[in-house]
Design a binder for these strands. Structure first.
Lengths: 143, 143
DNA sequence: ATAAATGTGGGGAAAAGTGGGGTGAAGTGT
DNA sequence: ACACTTCACCCCACTTTTCCCCACATTTAT
């Protein structure tokens, strides 16, 4: 289970150190891909496999199914850790999430998100300012 | 499993380097053909066989089934790698996908797509602009 | 306070991507 | 049937990126 917020830096080679607490759960294999909010998402193998299987089962003759497949799979990279517990983020993924040097690594239960630090701070600020309506929407979901 | 986005170039002889990560899975045999969206598609042998079987089973009495058959089978070429891990794309396939020099090679789980770089960037831009409806689809899948 | 673990930086070997010649087979036209 | 061109495939060479290793600073735990 991934929890917590960590501030790390991406070095000039595009490497990002993964919080030590997360490494064990990712060692068995994982995938990084584009998230829906201009951030990157790391799925451990099990999560990713079930997601990929669901998408693959859709009829690829439908245009929006192909679009969805491309969004999901084209951005994805097999996630590996080097001996220091770092991963190499491809240039196009860094570009997608506007990641330069400072990033926030966020544990979100079954998955991990990686944000450019500025974007993350903006999201946090927006969330806190917006607490009221968020509560209402969550109420609609029965939480 | 094919994943990721790679920017490669086609040289003057029409050769395209296949990402190293993909080579092993293609070495056992594969097929290149026209895709549905003005791109080229590379299917490993197993995938191609099941796709070909599926299409053959469709009622060839319907005009658009015949069109699909022609698109798929007439353009198909046996895929081979040279000693540098490159493949030779026939001129008519390059023409179909408007491929000149810069291309994007996209891993899509069971298949690989090859796009002219401009066309691919256009697809990506359209996808990002359309993020909302894709999020809904993912929600429908229970993600 | 000492030891261990974590995050960060960089050098160097290996691999990947790119370009270009040369040889032989296939196809074209006379 | 012949010369000629064109194309596919083999080899070699170069540049860039990736990966593996070592080193150091800072934090955490004992």
């Amino acid at each position: 289970m991934f929890l917590g917020e960590f501030q790390h830096t991406v070095d000039q080679k595009g490497r990002l150190a993964i919080p030590a607490k997360f490494r064990e759960a990712l060692a068995a294999g994982a995938v990084v891909t584009r998230g829906l909010d201009k951030c990157l998402v790391i799925y451990p193998r099990g999560e990713w496999d079930s997601l990929a299987a669901k998408v693959s089962r859709l009829p690829q003759t439908q245009p929006h199914v192909r679009t969805l497949s491309r969004l999901l799979f084209s951005g994805a990279v097999d996630f590996t850790l080097d001996s220091q517990g770092r991963t190499l983020l491809p240039q196009y993924l860094r570009a997608y999430a506007a990641i330069t040097t400072d990033v926030a690594v966020i544990g979100l239960h079954q998955r991990i998100e990686v944000w450019g630090l500025e974007a993350w701070n903006a999201v946090k600020a927006a969330t806190e300012a917006d607490g009221g309506s968020l509560a209402e929407q969550l109420a609609d979901l029965g939480i």
